[in-house]
Structures are given as C-alpha cells and as structure tokens.
Design a protein around this nucleic acid. Structure first.
Lengths: 337, 337
DNA sequence: ATTCTTTGCGTGCTCGTGCACGCTCTTTCC
DNA sequence: GGAAAGAGCGTGCACGAGCACGCAAAGAAT
C-alpha cells in the first residue's frame, strides 16, 4: 500500500505537490510533475478509498433519485434497492433525495428542476423519453452533475452511465426457455406494450432472432399491443385465445401480465407463459402455475447499482462503464421463489 | 449524519469518553455511560464507515484465503471472485494471502498453520470435513480470528458465517425445471457424487420432495454414485442408458458432468439433462444442447461475498448473518451465456 | 530601486474514528 | 500522614486524501 506521502518522500517534494500532480490541479513545474507521475506509476499508486471517502465528507454530497410512480409496482422494487444502498451510503455521509412522479414529461421536468435547486451533486433517473428531458440531462452534465439513467435509457444524451436490462438478450433467453418447455411444432403468441417503445421491440427481436436461428419449429402466430394497459391486455388475450384455442405458448414482453393471465385462467387453454417482471401479481401467477417462468430484470439490483456508480464517481472519481446490464442467471420459476 | 463529537458535545464529555462507551472499553462511570448511550440512541448514531475504515488501517489487516485445488475448476471460479474483491479491498489497505491445497485434511491443516504464523486477522476457508479442521477453526475463533466457511460448511464449528448454496433449494429448482421441460410420465435418472456427502444428499432430497409434492408423474428410476470421478461417471452413465434406453431425464447432482455427458453423446438417447455447475466443460455441453439447463452456485459471488463479510467485520465490527445462501435467479440455459 | 504579479511549492487544517498516554481526584493501605 | 493504586476522564496523534492559504523567489512594471 503506497500513499501520497510515500511518493512525496521519494520525489523529494511535499504531499501537496503530489496531490496537485495526481489531480492535475496545476501549479507544478513540468519536470516535478513528470517525476511524481513516474514514481506514482512505478509504485502502482492507487488512492486509498477510506482516505478519499473521508475527505469527501466535507462536501456533504447529495444524490437525487427520480423514478416513476406509475401504478406499475416495478419501480417499487427499484426503490427497494435504492433504499438499501442509500442506507449504506449514509454511513459514508452521503444524503439521498428520492422523488417519484407520474409517467409524464412535464411532471418529470418539474421534479428535475426541484432537485436541481436542492443542490444535488449527482442524479439517478428513470428518464421519460422526451427531447426536453434529454436536454435537461445534458444541462446537468454540463454543470458537472453526473447522471445515471436506470431501466430505460434516453437516446443520445450525455448521461454518465445506463443501468438496466439487456432487452435483446432477455428475448433470446425467453426463446431458449420456450424451446425447453415445448416440443414439435409450436404456436406462440406475443403480447407486448407498444411497437413504438424501443425496449419492447428489442425483446421481441431477440426472441425472433433466436427462434429463426435455433428453433424454427416455434412459429410466432400473432403480436398484439396492449399499450401497458391491464384491461386492454385482458381483452386482447381473451380474443387471441378464442381465435387460436390451440395456442401453445404466450410471451408477455411488457406490462399487462396480470390482465393477460386472468384471460388465460378464464379460458380452457393452458399455454406455456413467459413474462418479464417479478411484481407481486406475476409471482402469484407463477405460484399458481399459470406462468411457467419469468425473466427478472432484477430491479432491486438496478437500483442499488445505479446509486453505487454515482457514489464511486463522486467519492473516488471512478468513471464507470457506460452500460451496465443485468441478464445472467435471472430466470425465475416457481421453485426459485 | 451524527458523529461522535456531536454526542460528546451534547453529553458534555469528551470524544474519548464517548468512544469508550460505544465500544464498551470500560473506564467510564455508569451514569456517564448511560447518558452517552441515550443520546447516541436518540440521535440514531451510526459510525461513519470512512472514518472507521481509515482508522482501521493502522492495524494492517491481513486476510487469509484457503481453497481447494482439486482438478475440479469450481474453485477457480471462486478464486476469481476472491481476486476481484481482494483488489477492491487493497484500496482500503487490506492484504489478502491466498493459498490452494489439495483435497486432504492434513494438507489443509498444514496450510492453516502456515497462515496462522503469517499473522492473519481473518480467514476464509473451504473446509475439509474433518474433526481436526473443525478444532483448528475453533482455535482460531478463540483467538479472535473470525472464520468464514465457503461452499461447504463444517458441522458444529464456531465459524462466524457460512457462504454457499442452499443445496436443498437447488434440488427443488431442478425438480421444477424438469417439470417444465417434460410432459406425461417421466423416467428420471440421478447421478450423484456420494451418498455420504451431505450436500449431494440434500440436493437429491430437495428434488425428491418437490417431485412428490407437485410432480408425481416424474419417477426417479435410479440413483448412481460416481464419487466425483469423471471416468466412473462415464461408465455408470453409459450403463444406465443401456439399461434404460427410454430414460427421459438425467440429473447430475455433483461433479462428473463431463464424463456423464460424453456417455450420453455416444448413446442414442437424448434425455433432458440438468447439472449444477458452470465449469467450462459444462458450458460447452450446454452450448451443444446436450445439457438443457444448469443451476449455478455462483462461485464467483461466493468468493467475493465471503471476503466482504470478513472485511466488514474487521473494519466496522459488523457481525454478519450466520448463513449466506445464493439461490435465486441462478438458472442458466444456452441463451443466458 | 521599488512595488506588484506570477509561478511553484510547503504547511496546516479537515473529514470521523480508534486508541495510547497522561492527568486529576478519590480510595486504600501501611 | 504519605505513598500507592485505581477509577474516570480529556488530549493528542494517527490513518490518507483534499484543499485553502501563504510564503519565497523570480520576473515584470512603474
């Protein structure tokens, strides 16, 4: 363990100088700087996290968290991860301000302004896909406030990192599961949110690609859009089942799982169902055996990871990877509950 | 964020006194102690981790890691997790000493002695199940050196915590997966390591229980023991397939997956296979489609988690849960790779 | 020749906790 | 009555990094 003092002693300068060099804060002659850098490299210097974190406390960092508060309980789970990590970060003297607003660009914009006036030093955000939100993100980044997007990304923004699912790969996994659970020629129905929502489409593309490449006997019969509405999902699924009473499998690529499952329950059909979340109603259906498997987006881990990235960046200056995906090992069946 | 100083000021005593009370180091009058404790509780005092970690550096903590170095590459994976976490802990001024010895009580005992003379302050251990190892663990704990067992536990020892699989639940998950992948009456063969090894038995019990309760049409045809030997596994599996050419499913509860799969490949049978690890040879068979699914023990996470528990205990005095299981979301299929 | 500015650098304090040392006041013992 | 012991408490330093301040020397401006 080499410290700044070790480097200073070897270079024959003071700790202050070494500090200025390592944090490129200027006011050091090129020769001295070069010498210090060389010694630091040679000793493999890495700043001590405890020291850095302690020194960072003077700044009284505040991290803002802004999530959706739809009726969709997915963000409750994300929030749970945030809460746990926030408690941990409290022990490092970091404050978190959490807000949840409805799924609406203006509401989100307003909340962002509020957080900004509260003087946050970093932001974790589930962004509404709108130009003005993107601009706001860019504005914050411009002002040295790092932004981490969670669950959904926003195209072309300057956010520091994105934490969420690899939607495409999730679709591939679903395809593999269907293949495991079925045999022979299979009729598969897909119920999605909206073809305009990128992540839903990506999932379906992943699924279709995998089917095409490896499982050509699984045929996609129909793709319906429920626009994330439970009742629409209920009606649409019911109709689908009446049109195709011989359907073998159903893929819910987005929300509306509960409505769809109710329709299945009320019908005579018992298709194999794969879904994409782990909200209480989904788990209930999994327990009942209506749903065969669900692929978890690990919302809880998404929440804690995002916050952690901001923490690391603020206290140690660690710049994270631009994309953080959770995919592996995320299949749930009744027995994993 | 309340600090020791805040408490001291409110109680009208010095930081030293508060410190003595909170760490029950004595030399404080009962009245003062009571007052301090009350204020600490009222303010919800929690020690600042950055401060604690920084102060802990003076002690130059060394953590010993002792794993098996069988030909079984499972512990390579555990090691990978250890390595990653160890690097992280380096930034907190903590040294790790890792050793790998063959699967043998005496070899392990010797390595333990060595680590002890190196002056470790904490130990992470994959214990060989032997009385003398247990006694050694107890001796270390007696000397205030916390011990975390990983992957396998040792009965009745005084280890601080165990990190590993919930073997039983793993078996249940396997049962659920078999049910998903099959239909009608099913003949299932089980290949295990040894009925004397607790964890193997637990897995099988979990599987059997779940089958009995939920999936009575899946019948266990035979249970064979390969004693974790690849070639024995190969021979036994081959014979099993010749005896029961109509077998529908195979469950590998322990090692010997590669040998078993080779036997399957060479036969005409294509049973659904579920295994319990993610070593390279298993992944290859998964890719080939010979193995349908494998349930990961998440060795990498086991490694990093164990080390983290020791770190937390040493630097913050946090006493962990006695058992840490990884089970959820740990199913892998070809598409999750 | 004197002030003023700039460059380059060292010093000293801060963050919160742990802990050794040493001080004061009381009690005990011969 | 004086020495010794011990209880109860405060002070000060250490840990490693960040950063404000200020000092000295060299150069520029008056």
């Amino acid at each position: 363990m080499t410290t700044i003092k070790d480097i200073a002693d070897l270079a024959g300068v003071s700790r202050g100088t070494v500090d200025r060099v390592l944090n490129s804060r200027g006011a050091v002659s090129p020769q001295t700087a070069e010498k210090v850098l060389e010694i630091a490299r040679a000793l493999g210097y890495r700043p001590n996290k405890a020291g850095t974190a302690l020194a960072a406390q003077k700044k009284k960092y505040k991290i803002g968290v802004l999530l959706f508060s739809e009726h969709n309980p997915f963000f409750d789970e994300v929030m749970e991860g945030v809460r746990a990590k926030a408690e941990e970060l409290q022990d490092y003297g970091i404050t978190t301000i959490t807000r949840r607003v409805e799924f609406d660009a203006n509401a989100q914009l307003l909340a962002l302004e509020e957080l900004q006036t509260e003087g946050i030093h970093g932001l974790m955000l589930a962004p509404y896909n709108h130009m003005r939100i993107k601009e706001k993100i860019d504005e914050l980044v411009e002002k040295q406030i790092p932004v981490v997007t969670v669950n959904t990304d926003i195209d072309g923004s300057r956010r520091m990192a994105y934490v969420g699912s690899d939607y495409r790969k999730g679709g591939c996994t679903a395809a593999g599961l269907f293949a495991l659970m079925t045999a022979g020629d299979v009729k598969l129905g897909i119920i999605t949110g909206s073809s305009n929502v990128l992540c839903h489409t990506e999932r379906i593309e992943g699924l279709k690609d995998t089917l095409r490449r490896f499982y050509p006997r699984i045929h996609v019969t129909e793709i319906l859009e429920n626009h994330d509405d439970e009742f629409k999902s209920y009606t649409l699924t019911g109709r689908l089942l009446r049109r195709h009473p011989d359907i073998d499998a159903l893929f819910f690529a987005a929300a509306g799982v509960h409505g769809g499952c109710r329709a299945v329950e009320e019908s005579e059909c018992r298709p194999k169902i794969i879904t994409f979340d782990e909200v209480p109603t989904t788990l209930k259906m999994l327990k009942k055996g209506i749903i065969s498997a669900t692929i978890s987006q690990q919302p809880c881990r998404q929440g804690s990871r995002s916050l952690d990235l901001l923490f690391e960046y603020l206290t140690s200056g660690t710049v994270p990877e631009k994309e953080h995906y959770f995919v592996e090992h995320s299949i749930m069946i009744r027995e994993t509950m």
